[in-house]
Simulated assay, not measured.
Amino acid sequence: MDHDADRTLRALGLAEAPREHPLLYPGAWPAGSGLLDGDRFLPLDRTWYADRTPVLAIGSNACPGQLRHKMLEFGIMSPIPMVRARVTGVDAGVSAHVSRMGYVSASPVSAPDTVRELFVLWLDDEQLAVIDASEGAPVPGGNFDRAWLPAPDVRIGLADGTRLPGAYAYVNRHGVLHDGTGKPRTHPGQREILTELLIGLPRLRELFGVVPEEFCERARADRRLCERGTRLFIEEKLVTASGLERYVAASAHDGSHGTGASPQPLT
């Protein structure tokens, strides 16, 4: 078997982009670290990059097919290191907004006692600008702010025995959905969250239909409908803070982060 063909995203089951298939959100994640190089996912020879910016992937940014889709939209073909990490202090909550991509996305939430296996993307300046744009970070009406999550509040351990001093993550400007007690709920996958929301919210069914397939079809690229869905979450009193908002304010006043500072040994 051809070595390159064996490492294609299609062969590895990593090619589908949730932007094109919303019910697949957050998309397929790799089994381990690798280098996204065009249509291939190649082995890595190291886990951190001092000349790049570490970004913690909470949802579909950990899906190679989604990353490729975002980069190709801007004609970017440069490789992206994706490093699997053991992360303490953050979990994947449910965004309190309806995306024009046709899904309800994941957003990071503060979870001090939670340990998750997530991916750190090491992005150069050009790649970072693309991801920023895709999350709406540079514009006032965007859905996310990029915030630096520092250690030890968030602990990011790599497989080679090092710990990062922090990483960026995209914090939702709308807040996140709670679990009924006021605590942020975790994202169970797209079909599951849409089914639950449509069953529980008659007004949401009026807007988006009765099954997840209808929701995705109606939401895709309909900005006004998505805005109505987002307002409905507020009106139904389903929205709470992520617990990470303080880092947004801190990042706005601190320009020292943005490159891959040297990691520290795990202790």
Rank of each mutant, 00 (worst) to 15 (best):
P150W: 04
T230E: 06
R231G: 02
L36P: 00
P22G: 12
V83E: 01
G189T: 09
G243P: 05
S251R: 00
P81H: 08
P212C: 03
Y247Q: 05
R84H: 07
A11Y: 04
G243D: 02
L204Y: 03
S105P: 10
L197C: 01
R205G: 00
R46N: 09
P64D: 12
P112H: 14
Y49W: 15
A249M: 10
D91P: 06
E227L: 13
V239G: 01
F41Y: 13
P184N: 11
E245D: 14
P265H: 07
V98T: 12
V154N: 01
A159M: 09
H187F: 11
H174T: 14
R116W: 13
G260S: 02
Y168L: 05
R191P: 02
R46Q: 12
V176G: 02
R52W: 06
T267M: 13
D6Q: 15
A92Y: 10
K70T: 09
V120L: 06
S256W: 07
L12T: 11
R52M: 06
R205A: 03
G142R: 05
S99I: 05
V248L: 01
G136M: 08
K237P: 01
E206S: 13
P30A: 09
R203T: 14
L42Y: 08
L238W: 03
E245S: 05
P263C: 07
A252L: 12
L44Q: 06
G89V: 04
P140C: 06
V211Y: 03
L158Q: 00
V83L: 06
G157A: 14
I234E: 15
G166W: 04
D222L: 02
V55E: 00
D254W: 03
S105E: 14
R246N: 09
H187D: 14
I58Y: 05
G180A: 14
D160P: 05
P188I: 12
L9Q: 03
E206D: 12
L128Y: 09
R228T: 11
V176M: 03
V109R: 00
D222Q: 01
G209L: 01
G182T: 15
D179L: 09
S242V: 07
W148E: 06
M71I: 10
D145T: 10
V154I: 15
